[in-house]
């Protein structure tokens, strides 16, 4: 537990992270840090390495070099305690990945019961609480296939929240949704941000990133190309970001 970490210690920090898939260099010296309560948006073209960078934080990808520290865990080390790390980190995927054979309640209570060993009845209370947070109390006993895409993604967020993570990772969580469903998911994430949750999100929703992110990291060809407050989206300094936000990406 990292209860006594000094205030200045970031929750997530990447330093000079390297990652290749075969001959393809996906991350080429990536560094950034996320402070407690901060919302960081990773943006960039497809293939720029932003999703890989995010997945490295939860060690779904092993890095080739550099240092990653997440809630005190040295994620770059081979001996990292994965289960301890993943109790501190929640991750939500583009494809929801709810467990189709379980009800929404069972999806949510599975990990708290199996991993933290909390009692079934307490886990059920918890499920109700996190579902209320995402506005889906009435779907407690539904199965994933009975929910719309937006509802499934909100349930997936609730499932993650039930583990009470210290940081949440969002990997293009609205990319599979139409604008209306996107809006309902973004509303949930906005509320999380307002509640002070530390978040790292890979997103193509530039308008949303601009509205919610404390900081933007623009990735280009495996490097952090430009970083700064959300205002860099309206006044970019590099030609690449100028072009990126200029190509109709910045919806209001």
């Amino acid at each position: 537990m990292q209860q006594n970490t000094p205030f200045s210690q970031p929750i997530v920090s990447l330093r000079d992270v390297q990652k290749s898939f075969g001959p393809l260099r996906v991350l080429d010296g990536v560094s950034f840090a996320v402070e407690r309560g901060e919302v960081l948006a990773l943006i960039g073209r497809s293939g720029s390495g932003k999703s890989t960078a995010l997945r490295c934080i939860d060690r779904f990808e092993k890095v080739d070099g550099g240092e990653i520290v997440v809630c005190g865990h040295r994620v770059d080390r081979p001996d990292v305690d994965l289960r301890a790390l993943r109790q501190d980190v929640g991750i939500v995927f583009q494809s929801y990945n709810l467990f189709p054979h379980l009800t929404i309640e069972q999806n949510i209570t599975l990990a708290p019961c199996a991993v933290k060993g909390i009692a079934k009845s307490r886990a059920k209370d918890l499920a109700r609480k996190v579902l209320a947070q995402v506005g889906l109390e009435e779907k407690l006993h539904a199965y994933p296939e009975q929910l719309s895409g937006g509802q499934q993604q909100r349930a997936a967020i609730a499932r993650s929240l039930a583990m009470q993570p210290k940081v949440m990772l969002f990997d293009e969580v609205t990319s599979a949704l139409d604008p209306e469903l996107t809006a309902e998911v973004l509303k949930v994430i906005e509320q999380l941000a307002a509640d002070g949750m530390t978040m790292v999100m890979v997103t193509h929703e530039m308008g949303f990133a601009k509205g919610i992110a404390d900081r933007i990291v623009f990735m280009h060809r495996g490097k952090v190309h430009e970083t700064g407050p959300a205002s860099i989206l309206t006044s970019p300094t590099t030609p690449e970001l100028t072009q990126f936000v200029g190509t109709g990406n910045l919806k209001s």
């Binding site: 939860d58 779904f60 994965l82 289960r83 301890a84 993943r86 109790q87 980190v89 929640g90 991750i91 995927f93 494809s95 990945n97 709810l98 467990f99 599975l110 990990a111 199996a114 991993v115 997936a156 499932r159 993650s160 583990m163």
Partner: peptide
């Protein structure tokens, strides 16, 4: 993705296999 989601929730290998 199912397995990743389960691993992301800190389930053990055996728990992932079973559930």
């Amino acid at each position: 993705g199912q397995i990743e989601a389960a691993e992301g929730l800190a389930l053990s290998r055996l728990q992932v296999y079973w559930h």
